[in-house]
Computed example of a mutant assay.
Amino acid sequence: MNYKNFPMVPRVVFGRGSFNQLSEIISPKRLNTKAPFIYLIDDVFKNDAWLTSRVALSYDDRIIFVSSEEEPKTTQVDDLVEDIILSFKERPSGIIGIGGGTILDLAKAVSLMLTNEGGAKDYQGWDLIKNPGIYHVGIPTISGTGAEVSRTTVLTGPTRKLGINSDFTPFDQVILDSELIKDVPTDQWFYTGMDCYIHCVESLTGTYLNTFSQTYGNMALELCKEVFLEHNLTEVESQEKLMMASWHGGMSIAYSQVGVAHAMSYGLAYLLGIKHGIGNCIVFDHLEEFYPEGVKLFKKMKKIHNITLPKGICADLSDKDLDIMINTAMGLEPLWENAIGKNWKKTITKEKLKSLYQKM
């Protein structure tokens, strides 16, 4: 048996208001006065002085506001990298991502592509990155994706949606400040939180399950239940617990894998551009056959929080479009193997996936 030797985030700060320590944390990492820190910040904060005024810029440091309306793309990574290379004489001291999963994935990818030749699409897959990226910091402003702790950066490329999975992907530093997630709209809070919940269900019921994954997965699942089912938590407690659920949920899949909902939501994202969190919810709503208990609880949470999911998104798709989604989903073999087992191709056919997509 060849056990995987996974890296973890080496440094993490947790605590309400810890974002104020950012400059103190990163300043020892500045290479010189000409090597800037580049801040990739979700553009929802563009006019939010409460957050941006706390980012202390020195020398040639720069903030780049990035839209998170769409899933991150390999072309977007390449454009950011080119912009940075052309704008500065020296390689940056570091990349700091401040936002949700989209921004955190972009920050990880940009860090890697500043030190590896070619385009981001060349590295979609497992362990293709050869050189460590530059110093990179993740600061989540929404909780659930686990992007702050994972060894992948999920990107939509020209031919597929697939992560850059590598030992060099995880952040060098993470700051978990629950105050940063206080203004997240309810539906967004739910969809991203459910990404974490679905991670856990898929990890805990999968064939790859082991004690390492189970321990983190159970902890994240219990925290999700507290946040989404109980009414006696204060706002601060709810925010802190969801932040830790996201962290543990991300850890639970480090040594295992996700499953059916994630595989099929990749198809929705690749063809229709549907964002990851809501895509997972749309798919998971129809997966009683695979996750009976998990889906039952999901529907209960949906009802408690008055969430209405979009319907009929695949109703008018052509067979060609459906085939694109099916092929994208079926290409994620480790996810299916985790969900169903080594002989998954016997039960997961194109017809099976087509009938599931047509329900959505």
Rank of each mutant, 00 (worst) to 15 (best):
E235A: 15
V236K: 15
S238F: 08
E240W: 06
K241P: 12
K241N: 12
M243W: 06
M244K: 13
S246H: 10
S246N: 12
S246C: 11
S246K: 12
S246E: 03
W247I: 08
H248T: 10
H248F: 15
H248N: 14
H248C: 12
H248Y: 15
G249V: 02
G249L: 01
G250Y: 07
M251S: 05
S252W: 00
S252V: 00
I253F: 14
I253G: 06
I253P: 04
A254S: 15
Y255G: 08
S256C: 04
S256A: 15
Q257L: 05
Q257M: 11
Q257F: 03
V258Y: 04
V258I: 12
V260K: 03
A261S: 15
A261V: 08
H262F: 06
H262R: 09
H262E: 02
A263C: 01
A263D: 00
A263L: 02
M264V: 07
M264E: 02
S265P: 02
Y266E: 00
Y266C: 03
G267N: 03
L268S: 07
L268C: 09
L268M: 11
A269N: 14
Y270S: 04
Y270C: 01
Y270P: 01
L271F: 10
L272R: 11
G273F: 13
I274E: 00
I274D: 00
K275R: 13
H276N: 08
I278F: 06
I278S: 05
I278Y: 09
N280L: 11
N280W: 07
C281K: 10
